[in-house]
Amino acid sequence: MLAMLHVLTHDILPVFAMMALGFILGRGNLVSVPDAKTLNRVAFLLQPALLFPLTNLLDWHDFQFDAIGLYAICQIIIFSITFFICRIVLGREKLEAWLLSMAMIFVNTLLYMWPISYLIYGEAAALPITAIVAWDATITFAFFIITTDLMANSKANVYQSMRRIALNPVLISIFLGIVTNLMGVVALEPILTGLDFAGAAAAPLTLFALGVILSSHPLTPNASVIMLTGIKLLAFPALVFAALSLGERPAQWNTLVVLCAAGPSGAMAFTLAMLHGVRTDTIAPVIIWTSTLSLISLAWLA
């Protein structure tokens, strides 16, 4: 119990506090939602400073690819089930259902779980989290950026769509990081230092802006929010836990991959919803409640 409280107070709450601070200042009208949206956009543009070094310096050799593969399969299953529920049962618009389903499987790994895992386990011990961060940051995130853009701009011609996607700074940083990694080209130290300096601001800015923006939404959960929160915090990690019983790998990988699955819904579903004018009255409370309730589950699992 004491260990759980130590993890909660020393490693999880300090990261969560940035979103809580934004929420409090937003509710107190000290920071406006337009201000927060500007901060959110700045933070989004700073994410390449995190993503390029991550992909450029990534050492793939120690990854347990079967664990990543099982995690990805669980993502596909939960996403498909949630999309069916949102579209058929709840009757949500296609794009909103798409982003709600994204929120069930796209954990806030890069901006939330990664710093928390490093505080708890240190760099070497957090290799499984790093692997999931790399998967979500390079494949899952890129997939949802592209598909959401295409769905939201379905009337645009192919050239406009491809040009818009090709000029996305996040996608460019992911592409360059992967290509240079595969070529064995390590970025120069001054470049990495500058990116590290800039990238350090991305997580706290995003969490703070998200807190302010979410403060304008009601906290009381309706039936849809309760159901989706349950899928994210219970069904997804339970499925990952069951899937990881297949095969053999270091026990720490199973523990940390399940820990990652138990994290809160990623802020990027909310960011993409705002970017494309999708209603956020369900996405926002889901992020609030998964972020709040995951404080307990993460401390327990860690």
Rank of each mutant, 00 (worst) to 15 (best):
T282V: 15
V212E: 08
I116L: 07
A43G: 03
I287G: 02
I116R: 03
S224G: 05
F236C: 11
L195H: 05
A262G: 15
F63T: 09
R279L: 12
Q47P: 01
G199E: 02
N157G: 12
L233W: 02
L45N: 09
P53M: 05
N29T: 08
A201P: 01
M1E: 03
I73R: 11
A198W: 04
M113W: 09
M183A: 15
F65Y: 11
V31L: 12
H276C: 01
G263W: 05
A299M: 10
T130H: 14
V15W: 04
V7C: 07
A126H: 07
S265K: 02
A209I: 01
N153T: 08
V186P: 07
L2R: 09
A238V: 05
N153L: 04
A131Q: 05
P264S: 06
W135V: 08
W300C: 12
A262K: 03
V42Q: 05
V212T: 08
I226C: 09
S154M: 07
I129D: 01
H10W: 01
E96N: 11
A152Y: 04
W253T: 14
R164G: 15
K94Y: 07
G91Q: 10
I85G: 07
W289H: 13
V15A: 05
I172E: 06
F63H: 08
V240T: 08
M227H: 01
A267W: 12
E96A: 09
M4P: 01
P34W: 05
L188E: 13
L167C: 14
L272M: 13
R41L: 11
A36S: 04
N56P: 04
P237D: 08
S80P: 01
P34C: 03
A269V: 08
I73L: 15
H6C: 12
P264C: 09
P115W: 08
E93K: 15
H276D: 00
I178D: 00
L259S: 12
L228G: 08
M162P: 00
L233A: 06
G28H: 09
P285V: 10
A125L: 04
L95Y: 05
A267M: 14
T255Q: 15
I73V: 15
S265V: 03
L228P: 04
F197K: 09
P48R: 00
S294P: 07
G177D: 01
V15T: 11
L50Y: 04
